[in-house]
Design a binder for these strands. Structure first.
Lengths: 154, 154
DNA sequence: ATTGACGCTTACGCAAACGTAAGGCTAAGG
DNA sequence: CCTTAGCCTTACGTTTGCGTAAGCGTCAAT
């Protein structure tokens, strides 16, 4: 028995950046399964993020207990993934975020990263567009060949 | 000495699908270095494609000798890559292409693959678009935070 | 004889993000 | 007592497309 699981942790500077649920009783602690279900990811993923230092839930014995703050971090992680950041990049930003909360330099860094990522995505988009036009062209060519074939075979 | 390198191989149903050089004397055989330079890829890549069954240059002893046909296949491989096919998929199509040259079924298969890939790319593009708008939004938010900070600090 | 330029082979390495197997603990319910 | 649910750990496997040695052969020019 290793007691010491009675630190409540305020966790009330939650919901970083955006969002605000007005509804009633908010849960303040989540199991790994809770989060997995809520965000539709696997337990493995959650543990993996922890392994990589992106999350740091407290423990009750072996079991992980996630605070609202952890959950908020998870949200950021997932949003980071959606916009194409690697876990490593996400970790860097989160670390900055923790270091000195709400600070200027850290916001600037993030801003730059966002800008860079925007450029990168725009590049990727244009590559895809090129690929698409090449594909469509070829598609037409092959289609044409098939039609001629059909005529010839008749 | 293992003679038998005097088969000329017509190779004249070349330049698959498109393209037609009108210029003078065409080379009919290429070394691995030739192709690497021409298409700006590494020797390693060429050998890798061979390993994966995408190319099959004949040998003169140990040295690889690529025919025009091999070169044409390489072009297809690279174009396939550009449009986002995996080497495995490219191989499948090339295999079909070899099976019975210029045949209908194989063209249909390719056509389908192209269609599928077009859809896939369109999907990816829209995902990127979503990511971009999310990023731009967040970018603005953070920018705003910085501006307020600047005001407050003044 | 020696040095380059080119080419060849085998084979381990890498990055990203988990999947998945294997084995084990614990509390709740029948 | 046994089972089921839910959680835990360690650790190897997967995919894709080559990069990068390391060591060796070969042919032509110096």
């Amino acid at each position: 028995m290793e007691g010491d699981f009675r630190r409540y942790e305020p966790d009330e500077k939650d919901e970083l950046l955006v969002e605000g649920e007005a509804g009633g009783q908010k849960k303040t602690v989540f199991t790994i399964g809770d989060l997995a279900r809520e965000f539709d990811i696997t337990l493995r993923a959650l543990r993996f993020y922890e392994d990589k230092g992106l999350l740091n839930p407290r423990r009750q014995g072996l079991q992980r207990l996630y605070s609202r703050r952890d959950r908020a971090r998870l949200k950021l992680i997932l949003m980071g993934k959606r916009v194409g950041f690697s876990l490593t990049e996400i970790k860097e930003m989160l670390d900055l975020y923790d270091l000195k909360d709400g600070q200027v330099t850290q916001l600037r860094v993030a801003l730059d990263k966002f800008g860079a990522q925007i450029s990168l995505l725009e590049e990727q988009r244009s590559e895809i567009d090129q690929a698409l036009s090449e594909l469509r062209r070829t598609h037409k060519v092959v289609e044409g060949m098939l039609k001629e074939r059909a005529k010839a075979d008749h």
